[in-house]
């Protein structure tokens, strides 16, 4: 279902909504394209005319500065026109108003929606109800998916580790509420890593977590054994008030990444975090800023990956129109 919605009749990426249903070959193609765009960002003239004349709308129903900025930057480096729309919305917002927004923008002949929304499935809904010429990129929907984040993480892992097939990856923290984790798990499994472990107390793991094709552990020292890639997740303050955790300090004690815990992993393990970091809550500053941290590389890769995906979904439409 997801893959049929995401691919056009020629098997090209039309919408990018979720990692689910996409092939290893397609994910690899995204990574290869991103790698070539990463080169552009290092040049003094950081712009290519690939998407000149295209209009991209950043449709953010949920606040985000960092993600939106990287989409902005990616679009402008591809020479597209960008429209930023921030719609503060309540969770009770109706489908009608969402659809009306989409219809109005469609009428202005835009080409691509980059959507962030607090409801799981919102990007799917928009993709299903948009005019046929419009592509949709999911920039995070509820607790469902954040596929561009996952792909920039995959690019980072590939740059440091080359080959996915021998890797053991640990994702630590609030898996239950994390769209990032869901997309990462799907991407890692599709790219064929040896093992994905999730490490968290049961209150922060989704029901039947093993069905996601991961090994679940509650103890971090055990969980980090033989690990090549450590992905820390951001912990939201709400988790304490919802009785999912007793306190930040207890969470840090059990699941915060310190030098000592890091030593349980392989010596060349890399440390990742989708940001923004809660220093002293999920990660110690000395680790976040330490030699094994690749957190800033993730940020750099964010632009390249979004350039790759934007150009792929917009060029498939040119190709099929031709």
């Amino acid at each position: 279902m997801n893959s049929t919605l995401q691919l056009n009749a020629h098997g090209k990426l039309k919408h990018f909504l979720s990692i689910e249903g996409l092939s290893k070959a397609l994910l690899t193609e995204i990574l290869d394209n991103a790698e070539s765009f990463a080169g552009i960002s290092g040049q003094s003239v950081k712009k290519v005319p690939l998407l000149r004349g295209k209009t991209i709308v950043n449709l953010f129903f949920e606040n985000s500065t960092r993600t939106r900025t990287t989409f902005d930057l990616a679009a402008s480096r591809l020479s597209a026109d960008i429209l930023n729309i921030n719609i503060a919305t309540s969770s009770t917002s109706k489908g009608e108003s969402l659809l009306d927004t989409i219809r109005n923008l469609e009428a202005m002949h835009v080409d691509l929606f980059v959507v962030r929304h607090a409801i799981s499935g919102a990007a799917h809904f928009i993709a299903q109800h948009s005019a046929p010429h419009i592509s949709v990129i999911n920039a995070g929907d509820g607790q469902h998916a954040h596929p561009t984040q996952a792909m920039l993480d995959m690019l980072t892992i590939r740059q440091y580790k080359k080959d996915f097939s021998h890797l053991k990856v640990a994702i630590i923290g609030d898996i239950r509420h994390s769209r990032v984790a869901r997309s990462q798990i799907q991407a890692l499994n599709t790219l064929g890593v040896q093992e994905v472990r999730v490490i968290a107390p049961k209150t922060l793991l989704p029901a039947q977590v093993e069905s996601l094709n991961v090994t679940a552990l509650h103890n971090m020292e055990q969980g980090l054994e033989d690990i090549d890639v450590i992905i820390m997740l951001r912990l939201q303050k709400e988790r304490m008030t919802a009785a999912l955790l007793p306190s930040e300090s207890e969470f840090f004690k059990c699941y915060g990444l310190t030098q000592k815990k890091l030593a349980c992993a392989n010596p060349d393990a890399i440390v990742m975090h989708p940001g923004p970091i809660n220093r002293g809550v999920e990660i110690d500053s000395s680790v976040a800023d330490g030699p094994q941290s690749v957190i800033l590389r993730q940020v750099t890769n964010g632009v390249a990956v979004r350039m790759a995906i934007m150009s792929m979904v917009l060029q498939q439409s040119t190709e099929s129109a031709a």
Binding site: E20, S120, G121, D141, G142, Q143, H144, A145, R179, R182, P206, A207, Q208, V209, S211, L212
Partner: peptide, 12 residues
């Protein structure tokens, strides 16, 4: 609440 809700990030 089960595998499908977990997969799609939907409240179970």
């Amino acid at each position: 609440e089960g595998a499908i809700a977990s997969q799609y990030g939907l409240p179970g």
